[in-house]
Design a protein around this nucleic acid. Sequence first.
DNA 1: GTATAAACATACTGACAAGAATGTTTTTGC
DNA 2: GCAAAAACATTCTTGTCAGTATGTTTATAC
Lengths: 215, 215
Amino acid sequence: MTVHAQTKEKPKLTKRKMASQQQIIHAAAVCFMLYGLEKATVNDMARELGSTKGRVYHHFASKNEIFFAVYRQAMQFCFDAVEPVLCLPLPADQKLFKMAKAHAIVMMETLPYQRSIRQGVNMYLHGSDSTAERAVLSELIARRNAYEDLYRSVLQQGQVDGSLSVPDVAIAGRAIMGALNSLVDWYRVRPEQGTADQEKIADTLARTVIRGLLA
Amino acid sequence: MTVHAQTKEKPKLTKRKMASQQQIIHAAAVCFMLYGLEKATVNDMARELGSTKGRVYHHFASKNEIFFAVYRQAMQFCFDAVEPVLCLPLPADQKLFKMAKAHAIVMMETLPYQRSIRQGVNMYLHGSDSTAERAVLSELIARRNAYEDLYRSVLQQGQVDGSLSVPDVAIAGRAIMGALNSLVDWYRVRPEQGTADQEKIADTLARTVIRGLLA
DNA sequence: GTATAAACATACTGACAAGAATGTTTTTGC
DNA sequence: GCAAAAACATTCTTGTCAGTATGTTTATAC
């Protein structure tokens, strides 16, 4: 029974906790997107939740920690969308296309998160005084680099298997990420448009971006 | 003599005024880049100038107006760099390449300005209460659209003269601007590197971006 | 050279937001 | 069903910064 309690009751508590945190993170992402990282107040997030500041500060030590959580989540969305493609047994050009398309779609689907993290990394670099925060920040930046490395490695692979022609892997990688990530700036959510429209945008964009690298 | 005073003395005053304003705008751009739009305080700008807040508020009514001035200046840099290329009698593909390269170079050369305006348009959209500010903001956004239209028009032209193959002009335009503008995120100024390195980066990036659109 | 205005510097205020402190309710372990 | 702790809500403190008001210097006009 005690074992049962540990494997069912305990998770029930943490699940509740995690669900509440996820709600807060989502509300924060929306507020960051709407008002900007600085102008968005913790009260705004609470209001978005239909709740109060007390709840937020019960789960997170500071506003920065909330931003970090949003950042982590945003990156996780990206990894979850792209990593499956990496395992497919395909030539590099096709793999790259699928990755780009998957990335574009996840940009649109998790727009509040991606908008939030787009601005403000430099901001927080100079703003955070605590060394602990700096550490977290470098971890997040490292994670972003790891993600971009996925693309660079496929570019490299394409050079090897001959399906791609890349004069400069670093710059090509930047160009790809820049073009795809620009989606968060210009993509506007329209209520009537479904996944089909997103699919088409992602497809066209990915095709346009990749075509310049084909051998 | 009075005529002489109007044509020499008066301009001397306005020239001094404009020069002071330009200094303030530049200091603001640097601070916006370093600390972010919100965290950068008017005192920071004054300190950057080796001056005080009084000087800043003598020339600008509000912090927002300073940002608007930085925005205008940033866009002007872009227009000044790219418009000469537009007048050249070249096929669209070559013209587009020269434009992209010029844009890339101006991004690196006027980095503080471009960094400043990259974040914060959405921020100010919800933040500004005054209708006058909203008007200025739409004007600036319109100016940015006009600039991007330069690229879209050349893309269109390329479709006509057959030098380019563009499935979707709007998306291709976004992709180009996204890839080029990403420079402000990842380009780091190194003291030893001269214009030659910038040239090379710009050339490689522009080539990579454009190649996907060649016919 | 002196009145006048522009170009600053200095000192102050009011508003707002982060975070702490404290109170209240709900859930959980037993 | 009852302590105990987690999950909140409410209130208060504190620092900061945009903007203002006022003082001081410097340039201009005549």
